[in-house]
Design a protein around this nucleic acid. Structure first.
Lengths: 214, 214
DNA sequence: TCAAAAGTGTTCGACCTACACCCATGC
DNA sequence: GCATGGGTGTAGGTCGAACACTTTTGA
């Protein structure tokens, strides 16, 4: 049996902070070296016989205290093998993104950082987070399973613009922001989104439409 | 140190057989159990300190005899952890696609099988090959580094249609075939492809235009 | 000269973008 | 009422699919 590199499953947990109007990434303060005390993406070493999604759930629970009931869709980001990414030796990181329920609140070692402020993370987590933002953005308007848990059961037009534009700004390569002028039209044409007929809270002007899934 | 699953790097090597007019996948006849004697995708166990692309090159050389000089672009397909995918125990497969020079000819344990006939492979290699076809198709008309080695330095309009349509038919989910009526127009507008002014071999009718890269 | 294969002309409609203007809200 | 911010109307422009027709070839 040849010597193999360690395999870690890392997770990029996204969350929409509706009150703050920001898309956040949930980070955990590391307990041990390397990079003890620093904020980093939650990750664990993959166990023999464990599925990737199981390891991802374990990382979320043990590193940032997010229970499985608060995690909706996850998806693939990629495999990272940058040399020197971990000072402990050669490691392979298989990364997934996750959407965390907006009602979950950070506690303990966990902090939710606005995606625009995510930088200076240890290892190659900065790059991983930016690529993950791209993956989520790619699926946002094509996959109900991503959009629904991120935006919540109901959301107004401005929420949709915020989520799209902040992901686009963080993604690598950058995506395009949405013009709010046409966003209501786009949503009206989306199969799995319907207009509730209600209006959301005003942000200083006219109240935006409220939409719901299916 | 916890027990970790084995990590294999598998490669889906694509090749355009110009004479036969088919897109092929290069498979290797397995020497050892499990599935000894069966054709399978080339793959090796990842070594500690080895980069993914290095392991992919090693798989191509050792399993199907494709030297590094005959391999152009490679790209990411995904990570597969289906339980029971390998009877030896839990394994994680990190898969890449590769484009093999059309002038390389299979020998020894290697066989090139038309992509439409790829089925019944051991492990979950059928699915992996179909997803790889999708990844190549996604990049075919946007990434010169994929299109050039696959089609060769020069190619005629029909070659382009064959490559696109056979990848699309094999991909999962299926892609759309190109209408040859508009293909010459599309190629003429592609930045990195130019019309040589020459004509290719007739296939029973008018001779198609010949294109070259850059 | 005929059928088959490839290329060209042209049209149609979908869609995206942008701009202008209208509506609702808080102050 | 007035500044602010969201929604709607509408006009252009681009793009791609589709169809008919022409050109080139082998038989």
């Amino acid at each position: 049996m040849p010597s193999q590199p360690l395999v870690s499953i890392d997770v990029v947990p996204f969350r929409y902070n509706r009150a703050g109007g920001v898309v956040e990434v949930v980070l955990g303060r590391r307990q041990f070296e390397p990079a003890a005390g620093a904020l980093a993406l939650p990750g664990v070493l993959l166990l023999s016989g464990e599925r990737i999604h199981e390891a991802a759930a374990r990382a979320l629970k043990s590193k940032v205290g997010v229970p499985g009931t608060r995690v909706a869709a996850t998806g693939e980001v990629g495999a990272f093998d940058t040399p020197g990414r971990d000072p402990r030796g050669p490691t392979l990181s298989v990364t997934r993104f996750a959407i965390v329920d907006e009602h979950w609140v950070p506690h303990g070692n966990a902090e939710a950082i606005a995606i625009a402020h995510v930088k200076g993370l240890p290892f190659d987590h900065d790059n991983i987070a930016r690529l993950a933002a791209r993956r989520v953005l790619e699926k946002l308007w094509t996959d109900e399973a991503i959009a629904k848990p991120l935006l919540g059961a109901t959301f107004d037009t401005v929420d949709a613009a915020i989520v799209n534009d902040q992901l686009a700004a963080a993604a690598i390569p950058p995506g395009a922001p949405l013009s709010t002028a046409n966003l209501a039209r786009t949503l009206a044409k989306t199969e799995w989104v319907t207009d509730t007929g209600e209006l959301g809270a005003s942000r200083g002007g006219r109240r935006p439409k409220v939409w719901q899934f299916r």
